[in-house]
C-alpha cells in the first residue's frame, strides 16, 4: 500500500484498510455473542481504530512508536473478561500486532513456584508459551501477597514486568480481576500501572441483559423456554440478583444447567411417550423448583 512513501498528500483509503483488516467481522461477532457490555465494546472499537491508524502511519513512514498494548480487564466474575480477551487476541492478530493470536491463560499457580528457584523457570515457561500471542493472567492480584514478604510472587511480578517491557513485540499481557482488588494491586505495583495502556472496566449485566443471555444460551444448547418458563426465569434472576455470590453470566449458565437437570428428571419420571419437541422445552415447573424461590441459597452451599 505504501510504495510511494513519504508524500503527505497521498490518499489513504480508511474504509478499504478497515475492511481489509477484517476487524469489522470480529467486532460484529463480538456484538453477536456478547450481550450488553456497551462500554467494553466501545473501548475495543477505539483500541482497534487506534491500532489500525498506527499501522497505516507506519506504512506511510510516519514515526510511530509501537503502541503499548498491555491491558487490564476489571469486572465482577462472569462479565465476559476471558471471552473478550480471546477476541482481543484475534483482533491483534488480524492487525499484525501479535504473530500467532493464541491466548494462554495463566493464574498464580502457573507462574509462582513452591520453593526458591522454582518461580523463574515456571514463569519463563509460561512466557515462552505465550510468545506470539496473548498472555491472560486471571486474578492477577494473587501474584502479590503483601502479608508474606518472602512470597515468591514478587519474583514472578518482576519477570513479568521485564517481559512486558523487553518483549513487547512478542506478546501482549492482559491482566484481569475484580476492580477494587486490581486497584490495590496496581497501587502496590506502580510498575504495572504505567506499563498498561488500556484499562477496561466490565460493568455488571442488567436484568434484561441477563434474560437475553439466558435466551441465547438456551438457544445455543437447542432448548427453549415457553412463555411461562421465561417469565419464571426472569423472576428467578430477579431473586437471584438479591442473593450473595451472584456471578453474572456464569450464574445464568449454572442455573440453566440445573434447569436442564430438573427437566430431564421430570421427563424420565413421567415416562410414557412424548413428542420430540418436549425434549427441548423447558417447563415452568423446572424453573420454579429452584431453591432460590424458597428463600435462597445464603444458608445452603453456594451455587
Amino acid at each position: 500500500m505504501a510504495e510511494t512513501g513519504n508524500e503527505s498528500n497521498e490518499q489513504v483509503n480508511l474504509d478499504q484498510a478497515w475492511s481489509d483488516s477484517q476487524i469489522q467481522t470480529l467486532l460484529d461477532k463480538l456484538d453477536e455473542e456478547l450481550v450488553g457490555l456497551v462500554p467494553v465494546k466501545t473501548r475495543i472499537r477505539e483500541i482497534a481504530a487506534m491500532l489500525l491508524v498506527a499501522r497505516l502511519r507506519e506504512q506511510h513512514h510516519m514515526a510511530t512508536d509501537r503502541p503499548t498494548l498491555h491491558m487490564s480487564f476489571t469486572g465482577r466474575p462472569g462479565t465476559g473478561k476471558t471471552t473478550v480477551a480471546m477476541r482481543m487476541a484475534k483482533i491483534l492478530h488480524s492487525l499484525g500486532y501479535v504473530r500467532k493470536g493464541h491466548l494462554v491463560v495463566a493464574s498464580r499457580d502457573d507462574l509462582v513456584g513452591q520453593y526458591v528457584g522454582h518461580t523463574a523457570p515456571k514463569t519463563k515457561e509460561m512466557l515462552k508459551k505465550a510468545m506470539g500471542g496473548v498472555l491472560f493472567i486471571d486474578e492477577a492480584y494473587y501474584l502479590y501477597r503483601p502479608e508474606n514478604e518472602r512470597d515468591y510472587g514478587q519474583e514472578a511480578i518482576e519477570m513479568l514486568l521485564m517481559a512486558m517491557e523487553n518483549q513487547r513485540d512478542d506478546m501482549v499481557v492482559i491482566l484481569a480481576g475484580y476492580k477494587d482488588r486490581m486497584d490495590t494491586f496496581f497501587q502496590s505495583n506502580p510498575g504495572f500501572h504505567s506499563r498498561i495502556a488500556h484499562h477496561v472496566d466490565f460493568p455488571d449485566y442488567s436484568l434484561d441483559e441477563l434474560v437475553q443471555i439466558a435466551d441465547l444460551m438456551v438457544r445455543q444448547q437447542m432448548y427453549s423456554f415457553d412463555a411461562d418458563s421465561r417469565v419464571a426465569f426472569r423472576e428467578y434472576l430477579e431473586l437471584r440478583l438479591q442473593q450473595p455470590h451472584f456471578a453474572n453470566a456464569r450464574s445464568v449458565r449454572n442455573a440453566i444447567d440445573r434447569i436442564k437437570l430438573r427437566q430431564a428428571n421430570r421427563l424420565v419420571q413421567a415416562g410414557g411417550s412424548i413428542v420430540a419437541s418436549e425434549l427441548a422445552r423447558i417447563d415452568v415447573e423446572d424453573v420454579r423448583a429452584s431453591r432460590v424461590f424458597r428463600g435462597g441459597i445464603s444458608a445452603e452451599h453456594i451455587a
Binding site: R99, K100, L127, K128, K129, M131, G133, Q167, D170
Partner: peptide, 14 residues
C-alpha cells in the same frame, strides 16, 4: 524439550 510453543521467538531466546 520445548513443548507447547507456538512462536519461534521463544525457541530463539532459549
Amino acid at each position: 524439550p520445548l513443548f507447547d510453543i507456538r512462536d519461534p521467538a521463544a525457541i530463539m531466546q532459549t
